[in-house]
Amino acid sequence: MAADHALLAVSDLKHRFGGVQAVDGCSFNVPQGSVSALIGPNGAGKSTVVNLVSGALPLQSGHMEFLGKSIGGRPAYQIARAGLIRTFQLSRELRRMTVTENLLVASQSWRLESPWVALFGRKASRTLERELLSRIGEMLTELGLYGQRDTYAGELSGGQKRLLELARALIVEPKMVILDEPMAGVNPVLIDRVVEVIQRFNARGVTFLLVEHKLEVVDALCDQVVVMAAGRVIATGSMGEVRQDSAVVEAYIGRAN
């Protein structure tokens, strides 16, 4: 499944918050077509890396390439339009919009989002809307959210919000999705469903990068694991390989004296 060339290449990323060096020379590749994981103890700098790669934080130092093009310093919306979509560590939904609208607004073309189209191009937007609605219906059926289609996103349960966030990332037809702790607060039955959805979309060509604490999920899903500690990458390889790595064991359990 994993191809040779990198879809996302991050090199020598550094980021400082005041006196804290949160990311300190982080480099890794995400191969095209892979399901990769970014793991590490709390405070390792994983979320900061996600925020840098997605453009949510301004780049201070380092290089990032997506599809062979530099994305460093570009605003979040341009990185998303290039096909790299991220979710958030704590679910963030458009709470006063229904589940259907959440997906509709995510997937509609930005070219139609102008006042001129609103006033003079209603036919084009209606046609597009019909197309999108049938795709959205499929997606909601697939994720088991169809029953909640007209519910305000703010009224969903925690697990349902997680599924909605996944659906919102996938409906965009992205090349790559970064899932920031997709299993947090999700019950075991739902975890299986999320795993299955990720595998299904990976088979359709979507590359994934998961930031995840549940190592059994990482083990089941991921081709490649990148381990971070103290702002750096300390190991890269399969889950089996990094488990044997003494630096990884040390980072997780602490130095044995």
Binding site: S54, G55, A56, P75, A76, Y77, A80, R81, I85, R86, T87, F88, R92, E93, L94, R95, R96, M97, E101, L104, V105, A106, Q108, S109, W110, L112, E113, S114, P115, V117, A118, L119, R122, S125, L128, E129, R168, A169, V172
Partner: peptide, 27 residues
């Protein structure tokens, strides 16, 4: 007309959460 259009929908997304709207490509 503005409200019931893709434009109006994108505005509502920005209103509800500006970072989320940016995360799926809204300027």
């Amino acid at each position: 007309l503005l409200q019931n259009s893709p434009y109006g929908r994108a505005l509502r997304a920005v209103r509800d959460d500006i970072d989320v709207a940016a995360s799926f490509g809204k300027n």
